[in-house]
Design a protein around this nucleic acid. Sequence first.
DNA 1: TTTCGTGCAAACCCTTTGCATTTGC
DNA 2: GCAAATGCAAAGGGTTTGCACGAAA
Lengths: 145, 145
Amino acid sequence: MDHSRDITGELSKQGYRMTPQRMMILATIEKSDDHISAGESYSQAVATYPNVNISTVYRTLELLERLGLVTCTDLGEGRVRYHPVEKGHHHHPVCRECGATLDLKESLLTPRKDALLPGHGFIADLKHLAILGRCVNFIKYIYIA
Amino acid sequence: MDHSRDITGELSKQGYRMTPQRMMILATIEKSDDHISAGESYSQAVATYPNVNISTVYRTLELLERLGLVTCTDLGEGRVRYHPVEKGHHHHPVCRECGATLDLKESLLTPRKDALLPGHGFIADLKHLAILGRCVNFIKYIYIA
DNA sequence: TTTCGTGCAAACCCTTTGCATTTGC
DNA sequence: GCAAATGCAAAGGGTTTGCACGAAA
């Protein structure tokens, strides 16, 4: 599927201009298998089209997120990662020790999504939830409650 | 309860030196109601004992976390917050729009903690989980799956 | 005394911003 | 042409690091 065309079309439809820079940035988001950071998007974009500036990348990603075209996930790296909404969503266990990330079926957490609203006045965004912990290589002990 | 004495004792027991700086930093962690950031700990510590440096704060917090005496939570602010383990744990819905945070009973998520291990080789640290979403003031729509 | 901890200052990384210039529509 | 988008450069915030000095044990 050509998701980037979706995003491109959506931008035009909403009155935003299509620039070469934006197209390059969209391409990097699309072709990335895992979630991509602003810095990575910039490096990749500038490699094929030198006329891209890091601040443009930040402004573009912020726009896409505001329009709901990409989701923004904090994996606890001290930076944020982006992902097109069309590519689906899932949770991300992140190992505190080695930084390894896994994908996790959403179904493991969503059954309780509704529990977050009624008593708390809060709607959780559980599309890309970062969950810190330890992967197999760094499990030290198992605590059984 | 005097938790700081626990932490202090634990540090000594493990062969780490007790310095005035470390005591000041421990005190700030203890007296903070909510979770505290490195910068906040520094400001508070330096106010009562001028001889504290921000890098000492970072090194101390890193030590405490490594020893398992404090937990470290990423609330999506672009910085990290610390909390003594003895003070219990809970989750933190954080509003993407206004930054408001709430406390959430752990029981809303822990029933599924065990589900994270078997098939995935991962132990989730669900003590202080940041959950991004929108609070009552910024709820735009409710999606019913 | 000897190792550990600290202060200092610089550097690092990620991100944001103001302003002049360029460019899509 | 005009508003929107970009480039540039500077600044901001948070965090880390190397090294020499100082202090706990």
